[in-house]
């Protein structure tokens, strides 16, 4: 109620019709958001899908590191990052692959539609059941500090990650071109009518030689001709077509 009294709130309008319209549209937007969040699965884990992370460790990231060695900059976008484990997992891989990580300009941007999960990701604290899943013990002791019943991601890993509330259909404000985009295990949750827009948005924000990775069994071909597929080490990758 307080919010509606502030300037710019739904009641800061000139006519009764306009006020009613604002109230209704605000409520509809809120309801839509709540319904979307309620219908969204937040299933995630550290290093979820070992095959994909092995491919990242052995093929995708080494190639991107080599390609960007001159400028020492890497941008990664974890779209639909949920509670953050995927972004922190990529950060752990980069820590392993880049002995001179401190000399690189690395940013891993994690986005999700859900305010609650983004806040959770920013907090970077995980419960026993979460660190018990997928996270090797050596990485747990290297990258986490125990805080009571939770494990907190160490600052050196957290500074690589940035979390934002954002819709995967909408361009990210102020984002640089991404060298790697992870859009994994989320396509089933997006209405088919929106998938073309999702891929167009991802394509717009990718570096020309960037890589898009989808979840196991997910593919881009049915929804977009903006990417071409490559197969290597039992995984499919997508590269953006030039000139779109």
């Amino acid at each position: 109620m307080t919010r509606s009294l502030h300037k710019g709130g739904p009641l800061d309008a000139t006519s009764l019709e306009e006020r009613l319209h604002r109230l209704q549209s605000d409520r509809v937007a809120q309801l839509h958001r709540t319904a979307t969040e309620a219908g969204t699965l937040h299933e995630t884990a550290f290093l979820r899908d070992r095959g994909a992370f092995e491919a990242l460790r052995n093929i995708v990231l080494p190639r991107l590191i080599a390609a960007n060695a001159a400028i020492r900059r890497l941008r990664v976008w974890c779209a639909a990052v949920s509670t953050g484990q995927e972004a922190y997992s990529v950060a752990m891989l980069l820590d392993e692959l880049l002995p001179d990580l401190q000399d690189w300009d690395v940013k891993i941007v994690g986005t999700d539609l859900s305010t609650a999960t983004i806040e959770y990701a920013r907090r970077g604290r995980y419960r026993r059941t979460e660190v018990n899943r997928g996270l090797p013990a050596r990485l747990l002791v290297r990258h986490f500090l125990r805080e009571g019943d939770e494990w907190e991601v160490k600052p050196e890993l957290r500074r690589l990650c940035e979390f934002r509330e954002a819709d995967v259909c909408v361009p990210l404000a102020g984002a640089q071109r991404f060298d790697l985009v992870l859009l994994r295990n989320v396509l089933l949750q997006i209405p088919q009518a929106d998938l073309g827009r999702v891929f167009a948005n991802v394509h717009r924000q990718m570096a020309g030689d960037g890589v898009l990775m989808l979840g196991t069994g997910e593919q881009a071909e049915d929804w977009s001709d903006l990417f071409y597929a490559e197969f290597s080490a039992a995984n499919w990758y997508y590269r953006p077509n030039a000139g779109e």
Binding site: R128, T129, A137
Partner: peptide
């Protein structure tokens, strides 16, 4: 490796 109790069947499998 290390698995903390309590754990889930999935956690053990992973």
């Amino acid at each position: 490796e290390f698995l903390m109790k309590p754990f889930t069947a999935e956690g053990l499998r992973e």
